[in-house]
Design a protein around this nucleic acid. Structure first.
Lengths: 198, 198
DNA sequence: AACGTAGCGGACCGTGGGTCCGTTTTGCAA
DNA sequence: TTGCAAAACGGACCCACGGTCCGCTACGTT
C-alpha cells in the first residue's frame, strides 16, 4: 500500500491554511477578492505550500467546503429522521433541500466562492453529484415523479444555488426562516402534484 | 437634450465587435477562453475601441445578449399567445419558461459566458430582473401562489440557469425536446398544486 | 550526529482585463 | 477645397492574480 504518513508540519500547515481561508471568508469581504496570496499570508505560510497541499484554488475551496459539509453528509447518510435514510421520500426530499439551504446560508461566502470559481461548472463537483444522486433516488420513489427524478433533482437543487441565496439573503435581506418556508412550500408543490407526462 | 449622434465609423465598429464576438462564441471554444484581445482581433479593431464602446467584458457580453434576446422580449411584451400578454397566467408561465430555456439552448456559450463573468451576480442584470418581475406578476395571478410569486419565480428561473443547461445539453447529451418536456412538467407541477402555507 | 528527503517559501512567470496617449478619421464650416 | 477641433482609434503598456520553480530548511530515521 502506497499510503505514506504525512510529516507533521505538513499536516499542521494544511490545517492552518484551511483555518486561514475560513477566517478570511468569514471576514465579510466578497469571495473573489480573497486571493491565494492573502490566504497564504493569513496562514503564515508560503504560497508554494498552499498550492502543494491543495493543487489549485478550486481544490482548496473544495477541501474546505467538504470539511464544513461533513457533519451534514454524516447526518444524511446515517442520521435520524427526517434527514436520515429511514424517512418517507416526500418528507426526506424536503429535509434534504432544507439542509442544503441552511448550509448555504451558514456558509454563504464559501459556497459562493466555490460555485463561482470558473474552473469547470459546479455540476461536475463530487459533492453536487452526491446531492443530486441521492435526491434523484428519493424523488423517484414518489408516485407521479417516476422518470422525472433526474431533472427534478437538478431543478430543485438549482433553487438553492449559492448566488441566489446570496442575492436573497444578502442584497434583498430576506429573512432566513421566510426563505426556508418558501423553499419548503415550493418543494411541497413539486412533490405533491400529479404528473402531466404520458 | 444630451443625445449626440455617434460617428459612423464608431457605429460600424460597434457592429463589427458584436459580430466578431458572436462568431467566436459560435466557434465551439469554451466561453472563458474567448479573450477580449481575440474579439478585438477578429473584429479587426484595437482593444481600446472595444473597451470604449462597451466599458468592460461583461458590458460587451450584456450588449450582445440583449441584442440576441430582443426578438424574444418583443414577443413577450406584445406578441400573440401563448407568449404575449393575452394569455391565462398558468399557460403563460409555462410559455415564458419554455422561451427562456429555448433561448439558452440556442445561445449556450453566450449565456454561459455572461452568467459566468464574475463581475456581480447574474441576479443584478437588467434582463434577469425583467424576466423575474414579469414571471412573478404572472405567477401571483395563479390561485394558490399568492405571496409566493417572488421566490417561485426565482426558483423556476434557476432551473434554466446557463450552466445547468450546458451541463445537460452539452455533457449529458440530453435531447432538446426531452428537456423542454421535463421543464414543462416541472412548471406544471409547481403551478398546479395547492398551497401549503397558511 | 549525520544524512536523505519531504516540505518550505517567496521570487518569478504568463495571461488576460483594463488603461493611456500619440496618431488618424470625421464632420463641420469657411 | 481646405482647415480645424473634437471624436475615435489602436496597440504598447500596466498590474493583479493564479500557478511554478528551485535553492534552502527542518523532520525523522538509523
Amino acid at each position: 500500500m502506497p499510503e505514506r504518513k504525512p510529516r507533521k508540519d505538513a499536516a499542521r500547515n494544511r490545517e492552518a491554511v484551511l483555518a486561514a481561508a475560513d477566517a478570511l471568508f468569514a471576514r465579510g469581504t466578497s469571495p473573489e477578492d480573497v486571493t491565494m496570496a492573502d490566504i497564504a499570508a493569513e496562514a503564515g505560510v508560503g504560497k508554494g505550500t498552499l498550492f502543494r497541499a491543495y493543487g489549485d484554488r478550486s481544490g482548496l475551496l473544495r477541501a474546505l467546503y467538504e470539511a464544513r459539509l461533513e457533519p451534514v453528509t454524516e447526518a444524511v447518510e446515517s442520521g435520524p429522521s427526517p434527514l436520515g435514510p429511514d424517512t418517507p421520500p416526500q418528507e426526506r426530499a424536503l429535509a434534504l433541500l432544507d439542509a442544503v439551504l441552511c448550509f448555504k446560508l451558514d456558509n454563504r461566502r464559501l459556497a459562493l466562492a466555490l460555485e463561482g470559481s470558473g474552473s469547470g461548472s459546479p455540476y461536475r463537483a463530487v459533492h453536487y453529484e452526491r446531492w443530486h444522486g441521492l435526491l434523484q433516488a428519493v424523488l423517484e420513489e414518489i408516485p407521479g415523479l417516476t422518470g422525472a427524478g433526474d431533472f427534478t433533482a437538478h431543478a430543485l437543487l438549482a433553487a438553492t444555488r449559492a448566488d441566489l441565496v446570496e442575492h436573497l439573503a444578502g442584497q434583498e435581506h430576506v429573512e432566513r426562516e421566510w426563505m426556508r418556508t418558501q423553499l419548503a412550500d415550493f418543494v411541497a408543490r413539486v412533490t405533491a402534484g400529479a404528473s402531466t407526462g404520458s
